[in-house]
Simulated assay, not measured.
Amino acid sequence: MGSPNEGGRLAYADLLRVAAMLAVIMNHAAAGWLESLPVGAGDWHALNVWDSLSRWAVPAFVMCSGMFLLDPKKELSWSSLFFRHLLRIGAALVVWGTVYQLFWAWRDGSLGLGSLLPALRAVVLGRTEDHLWFLPMMAGLYLLTPVLRAFVRGAKRSDFHWFFLLYALFMLCLPLFLRLRGSQTAAYYADHMYLNFNVAFPPLAYVGYYVAGYYLKTYPLSRPVRLLLYALGLAGLAATAGGTFLLSRQAGGLDTALYSNLSLNVALTTVALFVFFRYALGAARLAGSALVRALSEVSFGVYLCHILFLHLLRILGLGTLPLPAAAGAPLLTLLILLPSFALSWLLHKLPLVGRYIT
């Protein structure tokens, strides 16, 4: 099950956050490079594999939040929900949204003393760096948390299974089917039954991952079930990489339908990796190491700031490296990780505000 760290931390949860942090950086490092290559080239295949290997990262971050916040054994007061969790999301969005606006102004040569207020206004209007979409989505999940905690408190295990079945059918399978094949009939019933979890409130699209984090932390899985999930996870990974190649070759350019966080193939890989970290790596010495704990503590900050260093590398002409992509993508990931970790660690040490922006 994984041993607790000091302070009641779960070793496998820390290790999972660190791995997800690396995967997010890999995802963004590989994606921009991949788009510049012709479909089917050797480097294209290598980057497609790296990109496919990293697509589980954001869903895993959502699961890590759900595994703790939905636990009814842990008290979650309204003041804690608003002033600890939601305030952190809001502060991070305002601060980092403004930082990226000012960075764009600097890049375009328009940065000046009057740039701050327009930058803040842009953030309020929702014009932020793409990866910051994660923050308002998580804020929505936090607002749903009291209702979801009531559900998990009274639900039987079979109730969870029914919930996951509905989520998989109407959020992971049906939208992908409609995108790949199209069906007016299926679209009609999905919209009018309101079982597409993304109809009116986007955070609902990720509610399955949020609940799954709690479920997989709480309920033990037998060895045969774990082996089945590992097999399904590998199949999902193969479908992501292989299917993306086939769809891209057919389209004559990169087709990212199977890269979606909200696709069955990515969900299967994410669940398999979560289970692997819990049961196979949770008791490993590395999982409870001081380095893993330190990286885990600032993983949120690394997520927020790493795009800044990716942009800087591109300005320096290092958005792609003069190396085979199989080796170049991991090296580019490392070049982004190191300064991102250093900046996040320094900001995390700031009194009062550090914990809200990293």
Rank of each mutant, 00 (worst) to 15 (best):
H348D: 06
R121C: 02
Y194R: 14
G2M: 11
A31L: 15
A294T: 10
A119I: 10
S158H: 11
L111W: 06
T269W: 06
A150N: 09
L178Y: 12
Y167E: 08
V39M: 00
F300E: 00
S289D: 12
A325V: 13
G317W: 12
F309Y: 13
H311F: 13
L125R: 15
V275P: 02
S80H: 10
S299Q: 03
G154R: 13
L337D: 11
T269R: 01
T145M: 08
V302P: 02
L143Y: 03
P72E: 03
L312P: 00
L316V: 08
M171V: 08
T333H: 06
L144V: 07
L195G: 07
R293C: 05
G112P: 00
V302A: 03
V207D: 00
L180Q: 09
A327C: 09
Y100H: 01
D108N: 09
F160I: 06
P339E: 12
L350I: 13
V24Y: 04
L165G: 13
V225E: 08
V49N: 01
L258R: 03
L308E: 01
Y303C: 05
C64Y: 03
C305F: 01
F170Q: 01
S110H: 09
P72N: 02
W345K: 15
A30F: 08
S36W: 04
P118C: 06
H85F: 09
L227A: 07
A325R: 06
L102N: 03
F309N: 05
L120V: 11
L347F: 11
L102S: 03
M137R: 09
M67G: 14
A267H: 06
N27Y: 09
A329L: 15
P351A: 11
L172H: 06
G182N: 07
F134K: 00
L313Y: 07
L316T: 04
V24K: 04
T128Q: 13
V94R: 01
